[in-house]
Design a protein around this nucleic acid. Structure first.
Lengths: 204, 204
DNA sequence: GTCTATAGGTTGATAGAC
DNA sequence: GTCTATCAACCTATAGAC
């Protein structure tokens, strides 16, 4: 969406901040308490407003959740502003794994919350598709980097760039999901470094 | 559990089937409607009983959900009874990917439902750990197969068997999750076969 | 825009008859 | 074990004053 340029005067926003406080509180509750506890009262209490205020700003619960989803799903900016060409493939993959895991840490609570109800799931899926936030975006980004490196000879030519990109994304996704779901257990799984080494072995 | 001969009289199980009907209905609702619609009334209606019956059998909602989770989390039996040693590694990996994706298709709705509330999440995580259903089990199974193949020389010796096993599991996990969350979109992602080819390339 | 107050509906849970 | 009937609690949403 359009990034709001704010030179000195704001146009239509008396900055009472109520709306943003509500969104921020809702996102907080969603992330740490789950959607089952995301009620208008809880949100209002944590935002320091009355719960009628929630309905004033968002109409109904569906409108509120839509806004919360939109607020929480934004940052897929993923290695933005990095000079990828200057880095070793292994470094890029390592960076990508870390950035992707962080991205999923932020976003998975919202994805999970939407699974509680088919209408929410459909609404979120539609939002993701409309805003080009789906997994194919990561595949395209990482995959085209890998293809470029193939043409320069820094990544072996017989690798399927998009498939490797998807495997990287999936590894980060699963790591983040296990963390969130408290599924690591005591027995430890292979480290991120071990996975990184295997991916690197695919590329060289 | 002494199974003595019971000619005409059964000991502790009048098989009215109410309890199982409730569990089955609850699991059905959970999988197709999400936990937001998993109410005692909905369950009772679909099971063909009164909703007081639900509380008779399970005490309260927490007890019901615990039983539903236990019922739905059972089958991690994963390539059971197959003679793995007789198969090519690529075939085993292909079989594993399919079996794992099916497993996650069954189990993910429950994992997702538990994320709606921290208490449910903790209860399910505890159940998974207590029953040895966590991801390390798959890693151990697939990893030890790959190690055995390394010793016979059918899988290259410098591969990290456990790391590759985890990547296989993560790929299946992510595929199943995208399907459930309706996140494939129109732009198609790399196929399962393409991912399989890359994994195979890691092993040979 | 924000509040108080409240209507109206749904849910978890219990009592008591059969 | 299963039912009907019911309650108290909670939630979404609205009305109306400031």
């Amino acid at each position: 969406m359009s990034t709001t340029e704010e030179p000195a005067k704001r146009r239509g926003r008396p900055p009472s901040g109520g709306r943003e406080a509500i969104l921020s509180a809702a996102l907080m509750i969603l992330r740490e308490q789950g959607i089952a506890n995301l009620t208008s009262r809880e949100i209002a209490a944590r935002a320091g407003v009355s719960d009628a205020s929630v309905y004033y700003h968002f109409g109904d619960r569906a409108g509120l959740l839509q806004a919360v989803f939109a607020q929480g799903m934004k940052p897929l900016q993923f290695m933005a502003g990095m000079d990828l060409a200057a880095l070793e493939p292994a470094e890029v993959v390592s960076t990508a794994l870390i950035a992707l895991e962080q991205f999923f840490d932020d976003v998975l609570p919202i994805l999970h919350a939407a699974q509680a109800d088919p209408e929410l799931r459909a609404a979120l899926a539609e939002f993701i598709e409309a805003n080009d936030l789906g997994p194919h975006k990561g595949v395209r980004l990482l995959g085209s980097y890998l293809r470029a490196q193939q043409q320069v000879g820094r990544v072996r030519a017989d690798a399927d760039a998009d498939a490797v990109a998807l495997m990287i994304i999936d590894a980060a996704f699963a790591r983040s999901a296990r963390k969130q779901m408290m599924l690591q257990g005591k027995e430890q799984l292979p480290s991120g470094e071990a996975v990184l080494r295997e991916i690197t072995r695919l590329l060289t």
